[in-house]
Amino acid sequence: MPFDVLCDVRLEAIRAYGLFHHEPFHDLDVSLPANILIDRDGRVAWMHIATSIQDRMDPNEVLKQVQRLLR
């Protein structure tokens, strides 16, 4: 696989990025769906955090943002 799939069991990264969400319907701790792009200098270059369950970035939009940083 060309990318890492991280298991954030202790919700470490999820909390570090303010994405913790206790889902009341299933009584579960999950993450808010989000894309966070970090540049070579370790700074947040772009991000999108979902405002609803069905809110997801178009992958092409995400790729466009990534291409910007690869130039």
Binding site: C7, E12, A13, A16, L32, V44, W46, T51
Partner: peptide, 25 residues
Amino acid sequence: LMRLPAPYGIVAVGQDANDFSIPNQ
């Protein structure tokens, strides 16, 4: 019903990204 709560505003564009160490697959 499908709305999600606002994030905790911990991270913002231009800020240093918070570090973490997590196991991969």
